[in-house]
């Protein structure tokens, strides 16, 4: 339901290369813009999902191996259920890899200009960068400055063209939240730099 455009692509049965090469290719697939050029990667950035799933399963296995379990634990111990999950995880990851290899996303030639389902990485970068700044700076800068910074970055990333106006709006917004939630409801929001004034 989320992306109907991907459902209509039932491409020709591609030759399926061994899964190991697909795994290593997926790492680069995230970085490259999908749909550019005619190589192996375009349309196959969906390998990110099985990669994440396989990564989680591997983490579970690593955790089970390093886990310290008391000697006399009865049969279904703490390792039992994660083991089931890891097995199912690997199987599903393999199935997903097969699915992506057989049905890569295709870009409609007619629709190339409108990019209805390719991602706008610049906007995502503004959001992620802004949020990282916010997360790392909140205790030092304080809620008002860090929150305003986040607001400004997101607004800019989503396409606002008025940086100066945005800055004042962002400060008003974060100050209002501080007043409402920290002063009003008594939440513990850091005052940071402005606290000493």
């Amino acid at each position: 339901m989320n992306s109907p455009s991907t459902e209509t692509t039932s491409g020709p049965p591609w030759d399926t290369p061994p899964a190991s090469s697909a795994e290593s290719a997926a790492g680069q697939g995230r970085a490259s813009e999908p749909g550019r050029g005619q190589g192996f990667l375009p349309g196959r950035s969906g390998l990110v999902i099985p990669l994440v799933l396989a990564g989680i399963s591997t983490y579970l296995v690593y955790g089970m191996v390093t886990m310290t379990v008391p000697e006399n634990t009865d049969f279904p111990g703490p390792r039992f259920y994660p083991m089931l999950l890891a097995i199912v995880g690997y199987v599903l990851a393999a199935l997903l890899v097969l699915d992506v290899l057989r049905h890569p996303e295709k870009r409609d030639a007619e629709d190339a200009a409108s990019y209805t389902f390719h991602s706008d990485w610049k906007a995502v970068a503004w959001l992620v960068g802004g949020f990282l700044l916010f997360a790392l700076g909140i205790e030092f800068l304080g809620w008002i400055i860090a929150g305003a910074l986040l607001f400004w970055c997101v607004a800019r990333g989503v396409g606002s063209k008025r940086p100066v106006f945005d800055l004042s709006l962002a400060l008003v917004f974060s100050s209002l939240i501080y007043l409402g939630f920290a002063v009003g409801l008594g939440l513990n929001l850091p005052s940071g730099l402005l606290g000493g004034l």
Partner: peptide, 20 residues
């Protein structure tokens, strides 16, 4: 409501909720 401000506001609320 302009979309940039709508999504900026929602993002700030996400941060607020989790940090609080």
């Amino acid at each position: 409501i302009p979309k940039p401000y709508l999504y900026a506001g929602i993002t700030v609320f996400c941060g607020l909720g989790v940090y609080a």
